[in-house]
Amino acid sequence: MSVLTNNLDLFLRAFGQTLQLFAVSAVLSLVLGTLLAALRVSPVPVFRGIGTGYVTVLRNTPLTLVFVFFVFAYPLLEILKISEYTAALVALSLYTAAFVCEVVRSGINTVPVGQAEASRALGLTFTQMLGNVVLPQALRSVVPPMTSTMIALLKNTTVASGFAVFQAGNIREALADQGDDVLFGLIWVAIGFIILVLPLTYVQQVFEKRWSVAR
């Protein structure tokens, strides 16, 4: 307990950074992932190709490599200077968006085809159909896998430790530097993550209940 109480400031600061990385990249990846899913079900072959290409590349690349690219390789392109923190956000968001896309797309596939046909027959455009009819129904059926994707994102933020972006993954080094008990320190880090994940599972339950509309 003393490891925690003596270093409360370190723990709070580190987990605060973790939460911030998570929150921003969660929002970005949800938006981007949904757009990618829309591309993947679009009637335009080029759009479908872009969506499929994105998912193939980003989902099949190790997250560490995506980080390496944005922290070390991207600056060599000399387009726009970004900090390591921004690079971490970009890497996490782009990587997670590929998984979000596939989760949303599987949700879209659960919506009966008649829903889309009825929308088209009424004169709705593809975007109106997706936004008003298909996606609202698709998102209801993807709450559990989407929560899993978000939990994975929360834990993936620790990969940033290797790239000079301070967050909960760095607590061990900080403790070791001070000569504190690393074993108990790490146990507290694990407990910290469990505490962060619990609200996510709670949110999952709430959404599942609220959205359980009979078909």
């Binding site: 009825a118 929308s119 004169g123 709705l124 455009t125 129904q137």
Partner: peptide
């Protein structure tokens, strides 16, 4: 889409928007 807006259609399986 504009033309379809002028043509009403009723399906065998109703296809009302479930949500």
């Amino acid at each position: 889409a504009r033309l379809r807006a002028d043509v009403g259609m009723v399906f065998q399986s109703f296809n009302l928007f479930a949500h």
